[in-house]
Simulated assay, not measured.
Amino acid sequence: MRLSAEQLAWSVHGTPLLSDVNLTVEPGQTFGLVGPNGSGKTSLLRLLAGLNKPKSGQVLIGSQPLHNLKQRAIAQSIALVEQQADTTDRISVRDVVALGRTPFLTALRPWSTEDDAIVVQALVDVDMVHMADRLWHTLSGGERQRVHIARALAQKPKILLLDEPTNHLDIRHQLSILELVRQLPITVIISLHDLNQAMECDRIGVMDGGRLIDSGHPNEVLTTSRLQQTFGVYTHVIDDPVDGKQIMRFRSAV
Score class of each variant (00 low, 15 high):
S39V: 00
T42C: 01
S19W: 09
R46A: 07
Q29S: 15
D20V: 02
L17Y: 08
N37F: 02
K55P: 03
K41V: 01
V21I: 14
L17N: 03
L44V: 00
Q7N: 12
V34R: 06
G50E: 12
E6I: 15
G50V: 14
K55Y: 07
G28T: 06
P27Q: 10
L17P: 05
G35M: 02
T15V: 11
L33T: 03
G14E: 00
T42H: 01
P27K: 07
L23T: 09
Q58D: 12
T24Y: 06
L44F: 01
N22W: 01
L45G: 08
Q29C: 13
T42Y: 05
S56G: 15
K55E: 14
L23W: 14
G50M: 10
V21E: 06
L33C: 10
R46G: 08
V25M: 08
S56L: 07
T15G: 00
L48G: 13
L8K: 13
N52K: 08
P27T: 04
Q7R: 14
S19N: 04
T24A: 15
G38F: 02
E6C: 14
G14F: 04
P54L: 08
P36M: 00
T30G: 08
G40N: 09
G32P: 05
S11R: 07
A5Y: 14
N22F: 07
G40L: 08
E26F: 04
G35Y: 02
N37V: 01
F31W: 15
V21A: 09
P27E: 05
G38K: 02
G35T: 09
G14N: 08
S43K: 03
G57S: 10
A9T: 14
S39Y: 00
Q29I: 11
L18Q: 07
A5P: 15
D20N: 08
G40E: 06
V21D: 04
A9E: 12
P27H: 05
E26R: 11
A5G: 15
L44H: 04
T15S: 06
G35F: 01
G32V: 11
V25T: 09
S11D: 05
A49T: 07
H13I: 02
T30I: 12
L51A: 11
S43V: 05
G28E: 03
G32Y: 03
S39M: 06
G57F: 09
T30W: 03
L48D: 13
G57E: 05
P36H: 04
V21Q: 09
V34E: 04
V25K: 03
L45M: 13
Q29R: 15
G57W: 11
G50N: 12
G50R: 09
G14L: 04
G40V: 07
D20I: 01
R46F: 07
L51C: 09
T24N: 14
L18I: 06
T42E: 02
A5M: 15
P27Y: 03
N37C: 00
V12T: 03
D20A: 01
L8Y: 13
S11E: 11
R46V: 05
L23G: 12
W10A: 08
V34H: 06
T24W: 09
S43D: 01
